[in-house]
Amino acid sequence: MPLDKIGIAKRIAKEVKDGYYVNLGIGIPTLVANYVPTEINVEFQSENGILGMGPFPFEGEEDPDIINAGKQTITTLPGASFFDSALSFSMIRGKHVDLTILGAMEVSEEGDIANWKIPGKMVKGMGGAMDLVASAENIIVAMMHVNKAGESKLLKKCSLPLTGVKCVKKIVTELAVLEITPHGFKLLERAPGVSVEYIKSVTEGYLEVEGLIPEMEID
């Protein structure tokens, strides 16, 4: 059975390692914070200028001066720090952030990503996404395998305007965990009960399948 959004977030949470500084994008990536094992130490960075982000505040304790990049009220954890936008992007471009998790509209088999613009539609902007994907050593994309029209979002070449080139390392969808290799999308894991043939049928880019593909372990 394909995963739901929470399932995707839970699977990605397993990629978060002890000692990591992590930047989470808006949407499914934000949910990842809820499933990181409590026994490891991780700090979340939000590009509007906070490191050591905590959960949402209790009702009545919201502070308009303390928000995340999604403009949501949040809290800080002990050891947190605030900084300006330039320093924030020094952390990002300077490769000090260990892991970036973000959503995408399309990913190509070479690791190109498109996630900010659909020609002909209202364009809201790239925000910090272009800076994030340009430098991060470890980028995981959280997204659905196909779009609303049922078309593959894992392509030979992206059709939408790009956010960054050759940057994505790993993708977690409701169907599979895939890694970008010099050959294309390498299938690492499949969602429980989802067949390799089915994943192949909804992956337009080259899908590399080597040996038996294990099912994802969630929870």
Binding site: F56, P57, F58, E59, E61, E62, I67, G70, Q72, T73
Partner: peptide, 13 residues
């Protein structure tokens, strides 16, 4: 005024 754009909270303690 310091308006909040997205008020997100946990239930009160």
């Amino acid at each position: 005024e310091k308006r909040i754009e997205q008020r997100t909270v946990r239930p009160a303690k």
